[in-house]
Design a protein around this nucleic acid. Sequence first.
DNA 1: GTAGTTAATTGTAAAGTGCACAAAACACCA
DNA 2: TGGTGTTTTGTGCACTTTACAATTAACTAC
Lengths: 217, 217
Amino acid sequence: MAEHPTPIATVDIVLLTLAEGRLQVALAPRAAEPARGQPALPGGYVRTGQDDSLEAAARRVLRDKLGLAPRSLEQLASFGGATRDPRGWSISVAFLSVLNLEELAASPALRLAPVDALPPLPFDHAEIVAAAVRRLRNKASYSALPAFLLPAHFTLAELHRVYEQVLGTRLDPASFRRKIEEQQIIIPVGERRAGAHRPARLFALAPDAAWEFDRTI
Amino acid sequence: MAEHPTPIATVDIVLLTLAEGRLQVALAPRAAEPARGQPALPGGYVRTGQDDSLEAAARRVLRDKLGLAPRSLEQLASFGGATRDPRGWSISVAFLSVLNLEELAASPALRLAPVDALPPLPFDHAEIVAAAVRRLRNKASYSALPAFLLPAHFTLAELHRVYEQVLGTRLDPASFRRKIEEQQIIIPVGERRAGAHRPARLFALAPDAAWEFDRTI
DNA sequence: GTAGTTAATTGTAAAGTGCACAAAACACCA
DNA sequence: TGGTGTTTTGTGCACTTTACAATTAACTAC
């Protein structure tokens, strides 16, 4: 049946974070050919002897190559073709991880690039990043995914700012608070953020809530 | 780097249709081992000598094995693991196609099974079908994807019934009409459906409109 | 014609949203 | 100790959207 060589199988991970008020993607210099030394999405081969699943392969790459164990990781889409990789027909299963700068600090080799001003990237990595940003922006309108851009504890005002930065639009503060609080996606942790002004309540993402809002037709 | 055998790469296609008022999936008897003869999702190897992309591989399988060229086809997700296929570590890139019974009639070997009463399926095909149904139900609340369950021309009442069947809920006729008409996803074709009663206007999906509704936070 | 049936529209109350502003709670300073 | 500035949080209200009910429109069959 399979008279054709099997395609190369890799996983690539789009790490999105918020730095300097902009959405940025973390890039790693490629360790091997092709495009050795150039910044690219971190990734690696699916190791059939080691990995139990595609997500396990992505987590292994994150752990072994970058020292990361991010809270958020979801499959994005798969990109396959005859010409996207000079080594031959290849399939890249792309994953999306949304994380904050502290989580990312564990991996000093990574460098950030704003998603709207990417350097030239090898393969079809620019397209993969674009798909990841679309996914995050879309999910921002009906899920708590952008909350992973913040530390584990955050204030409503911080969450509000993050949503505005991700979506690139203004959101009414009162409506935002009403909407977020009526969903069951964040819970107050009791403490308050001490500061120069009125202290804000701190929230955390609900343990393993369905991080999706209601959508109605 | 890759001291491991490369995984098997296949595409599998979830064909969803509406028959007897229920959402059903089209299954084909497997032509080869494993599970030869048993009903399963139609699929096949990615042929690196023939296919230019993953979607091209899915379209080839649909065309060559089933004689189908459905209007709707989108990537669903990828399923990979060491144990999902007895032949070894495998990756299945799953696709979702939503179509009507007339389109499906071109392929007589297929048999339908209600998505909520599936027969035993090999591999993780039951899980893939479940993901496809979730995708369709989700998209029903903000896109015109369920319209592909109908013929090219349809009435608003038919579309209304299809949405209700897919979502499993009642939808207010007046609100549904307003919502659908204010989006730009369907256009009247001018004709009317003659019948025993007041004739209904016929609509078609907008040529290549963005089949997505507005979502607001 | 008239009854019967489905298609399509209209009216209205309830719910949700955007906007402006007010109240609350702190630090800081005089 | 009290006033001031600043940020968080809550409230009132106009406006829009949605749910629900009822009505009108258009045809066939008798």
